[in-house]
């Protein structure tokens, strides 16, 4: 909260230190995502990818869950267009991120925005919203620092996983599959001061769980998110209709 004073008196911090502040924000995500990146590389090779293809996929898509789904379906010899459609379905939630974060990035030059949206992962979105919530202007240097801190290890470690996949010890014992939910819970909790946080969480939890049981993954994410977002819009008191649009 104290940081809001810095922005309000107009003195903008040096880009280099902002970049490193962003890198530090990315570090827990690197810890949480590393085992996942190594695992992705190892599984991709198991599913018929070359090491080069693993690195290319991580660099071009940069979306863990969708990449996992992609290699899994590819390994099952599903038609390529269906694999692509599934990647799209898994990543569909990002539409909400870009709609929401647009307000924070609008003051950047276009090329910076183009880069910014490329690295708009779950943690990138959540941390940028946190940054804005703490009264700071979301700066490109900070955002790029965090993006690079997550992107570079993601690409490198999936390559390492592809090369040394066989050497990975028991991934389950290391908690690999559950580290990201823990991290996401932490970010979720940090938004708890927001208006209607609890009803939104309750609605999204209920609908995503029901959708997970009925329509199945990955659409449960979009369905659950939509429920919370619609409820948030509905609960919010809005000034008289028709005054201004």
């Amino acid at each position: 909260m104290s940081a809001s004073i810095v922005t309000e008196n107009g003195a903008s911090p040096a880009p280099v230190s902002e970049f490193w502040r962003g890198v530090r924000v990315g570090l827990p995500i690197v810890v949480a995502a590393s085992p996942f990146a190594l695992l992705f590389g190892a599984l991709a090779v198991d599913n018929g990818f070359t090491v080069g293809e693993v690195i290319f996929m991580s660099a071009a898509i940069f979306g863990g869950a969708s990449q996992m789904v992609g290699i899994e379906l590819f390994g099952q010899h599903i038609a390529p267009w269906l694999v692509v459609l599934s990647i799209f379905a898994v990543n569909f939630r990002h539409v909400l991120y870009s709609a929401t974060i647009g307000r924070r990035l609008a003051h950047w030059p276009l090329w910076q925005q183009a880069v910014g949206y490329f690295v708009l992962t779950d943690p990138q979105f959540a941390e940028a919203e946190r940054e804005a919530e703490q009264g700071r202007r979301v700066g490109f240097a900070w955002y790029a620092g965090m993006g690079a801190a997550v992107y570079v290890p993601w690409v490198v470690e999936s390559g390492i996983g592809a090369v040394f996949g066989r050497l990975i010890p028991d991934a389950h014992a290391l908690g690999v599959d559950f580290l990201l939910p823990i991290y996401f819970l932490g970010v979720l909790m940090s938004f708890r001061a927001r208006a209607f946080w609890l009803p939104v969480v309750a609605a999204s939890a209920l609908v995503s769980v029901v959708a997970y049981k009925t329509i199945g993954s990955p659409w449960h994410v979009s369905a659950g998110a939509l429920a919370g977002v619609v409820l948030g819009a509905f609960l919010s008191p809005v000034p008289e209709e028709g005054t201004r649009r």
């Binding site: 939630r93 709609a99 779950d122 979105f125 996401f184 819970l185 979720l188 939104v200 659950g224 819009a233």
Partner: peptide, 14 residues
Amino acid sequence: NAVPAAVLTTLVAP
């Protein structure tokens, strides 16, 4: 404004 709570919940609850 509800997006972060809504989406993050769907990544945890299921």
